[in-house]
Computed example of a mutant assay.
Amino acid sequence: MTPPAERKQVLLRLDPVVYEALARWASDELRSANAQIEFLLRRALQEAGRLPGGVAPIPRRGRPPKTTPIAPGTPTTQPEAEPEREAEPKQQE
């Protein structure tokens, strides 16, 4: 397994009013201003058809999702759900 590539650091100069609007938007979506900028840049690149194919997804931050503990000997895969049956047509009398 190869170590993840180091993230590129970039100095960005923004109008203070633009930064404040961006920071509020990021806060509304529970992101940092930096993560919001990256999210928006990736979305713009994708919409323009310029996002490289091998780009890694944005790393998830924060606490990992809760998982249910699995008892020893329990299968790790979920059983397949039965296909839904179509309702039987009613017989006319």
Rank of each mutant, 00 (worst) to 15 (best):
E47Y: 07
L14V: 12
P64R: 13
R24L: 13
T68F: 15
V17I: 09
A26H: 07
A5M: 06
R31D: 06
V18L: 15
P65C: 11
P16K: 02
E82W: 10
Q46N: 10
T67V: 13
P69N: 14
E88V: 12
E29L: 09
A23H: 05
Q36V: 02
A21G: 07
V18K: 06
V55A: 11
A48Y: 13
S27P: 02
A81V: 04
P65M: 13
G53P: 06
P52Q: 01
P72Q: 03
P83L: 02
P79N: 04
P16N: 03
Q9V: 05
P52T: 01
L45E: 11
A21P: 07
V55R: 08
E88A: 13
R43P: 06
P16H: 00
L45T: 04
M1V: 01
T67K: 13
A48G: 14
S32I: 01
P57D: 02
E38W: 04
A21R: 14
A21S: 06
R31Q: 02
E20A: 15
P52C: 02
L14D: 09
D15H: 06
A23C: 11
M1P: 07
G49T: 03
E88P: 06
R85H: 08
L51N: 05
I70A: 08
P57Q: 07
R13Q: 11
R13W: 09
K66T: 12
P65F: 05
E86L: 06
E84N: 09
Q36W: 05
P59F: 00
Q9T: 10
E20Y: 14
A33M: 08
L14C: 12
P16A: 09
A81L: 12
A44I: 03
P59V: 02
T76A: 15
E6Q: 15
A33F: 05
A56S: 11
L41H: 00
P65V: 01
Q91W: 14
D15M: 03
N34P: 14
Y19H: 14
L22D: 03
P57Y: 02
I70W: 05
E82T: 07
T74F: 03
A81C: 10
R13F: 05
E38G: 13
S32K: 10
L41E: 05
R13I: 12
T77E: 14
P59I: 02
T68R: 15
E86N: 03
A23K: 15
I58H: 09
E82F: 10
L14K: 12
G53V: 00
R13T: 14
A87W: 08
S32C: 06
P57W: 04
Q46R: 09
Q36R: 00
K8T: 10
E20P: 08
R13C: 11
P3T: 07
T74H: 05
P89F: 04
G54N: 13
A26E: 11
T77I: 12
L11C: 08
R63S: 04
L11V: 10
V17N: 15
P89K: 04
L40P: 07
R7V: 15
N34T: 08
R60M: 11
P16I: 02
R50P: 10
P64W: 03
L51C: 03
L22Y: 05
K90H: 11
